[in-house]
Amino acid sequence: MEKSCLECGEKLLGRADKKYCNDHCRNAYNNKRNKESNQLIRTVNNRLRKNYRILQDLNPEGKTTASRKKMADRGFDFSFITHTYTTKKGSTYYFVYDLGYLPLDNDYFMLVKRTA
Results as ranks from 00 to 15, higher is better:
E2Q: 02
E2V: 01
E2M: 00
K3Q: 01
S4L: 08
G9I: 15
E10L: 03
E10K: 12
E10Q: 08
E10S: 04
K11A: 07
L12D: 00
G14S: 03
R15V: 02
A16E: 04
D17P: 00
D17V: 05
D17M: 05
D17G: 02
K18S: 03
K18H: 04
C21P: 09
D23T: 11
D23Q: 10
C25P: 09
C25M: 04
R26K: 09
N27F: 14
A28Q: 13
A28E: 08
N30H: 15
N31Y: 09
K32D: 07
R33D: 07
N34C: 10
N34F: 10
K35G: 05
K35A: 14
S37V: 15
Q39N: 11
Q39M: 13
L40W: 14
I41T: 15
R42N: 11
R42W: 05
R42G: 07
R42F: 07
T43I: 09
V44E: 10
N46R: 10
N46L: 12
L48S: 05
R49M: 11
K50W: 04
N51Q: 04
Y52E: 05
Y52W: 10
R53P: 03
R53S: 14
R53L: 12
N59I: 08
E61I: 13
E61Y: 11
G62Q: 05
K63F: 03
T64D: 01
A66V: 01
S67V: 01
S67L: 00
S67Y: 03
S67M: 01
R68W: 12
R68G: 07
K69C: 09
M71T: 08
M71G: 11
M71D: 14
D73N: 12
D73E: 13
D73R: 05
R74V: 06
G75E: 05
G75K: 04
G75I: 08
G75Y: 10
G75T: 07
F78R: 10
F80P: 07
F80V: 11
F80W: 12
I81N: 11
I81G: 06
I81T: 15
I81K: 08
I81H: 09
T82D: 01
H83D: 12
T86I: 13
T86C: 10
K88Q: 08
K88G: 08
K88V: 14
K88L: 13
K89H: 05
G90F: 02
S91G: 02
S91A: 07
T92C: 01
T92P: 00
Y93P: 02
Y93S: 05
Y93V: 06
Y94K: 13
Y94N: 13
V96N: 06
Y97G: 01
Y97M: 04
D98T: 15
L99C: 00
L99P: 00
G100N: 00
G100F: 01
Y101N: 02
Y101L: 07
L102Q: 01
L102R: 04
L102K: 01
P103G: 09
D107S: 09
F109Y: 15
F109E: 07
M110L: 15
L111D: 11
K113L: 04
R114I: 13
T115P: 03
A116D: 08
A116Y: 10
